[in-house]
């Protein structure tokens, strides 16, 4: 993400990459499989229960867990990106905010 990009562009790019990470997650390890599913659910507005109203600190813990405990680079990069996006925008994962199409980056 370039320093030249606007916050909106960063969000768009961040969402796109996170969706790709979810699509690429093979499911072999749980921090990545379950973490990327949490991310996809909030991006797609499909989270159950409290609708994805997870505090930023919890998202940060999820990012750290993925980055440090995932089996391969997919989950680790996904986790690092979660932390990076939260650094730039603490409300990145807030539920109910307008998102780009959930189709981007999904498996065909």
């Amino acid at each position: 993400m370039s320093g030249e990009a606007s916050l909106a562009e960063e969000r768009t790019l961040g969402e796109f990459v996170l969706r790709r990470v979810h699509a690429e997650s093979c499911g072999e390890c749980l921090p990545c499989a379950l973490g990327t599913r949490q991310i996809a659910a909030v991006l797609n507005g499909t989270a159950g229960g409290n609708g994805g109203a997870v505090e930023a600190a919890v998202w940060r813990a999820l990012g750290r867990a993925m980055r440090q405990a995932a089996k391969c680079g997919v989950g680790r990069i996904g986790g690092a990106l979660v932390e990076e996006l939260l650094d730039r925008d603490p409300d990145f994962f807030a539920p109910g905010r307008k998102r780009n199409s959930g189709d981007q980056g999904q498996e065909g």
């Binding site: 749980l30 379950l34 973490g35 229960g49 750290r64």
Partner: peptide, 17 residues
């Protein structure tokens, strides 16, 4: 702390589902 957090986050995500 990092070990406990990673374990707990994974466990909570399992329990959530």
């Amino acid at each position: 702390e990092a070990v406990r957090e990673a374990r707990k986050v994974t466990l909570e995500m399992i329990l959530a589902n």
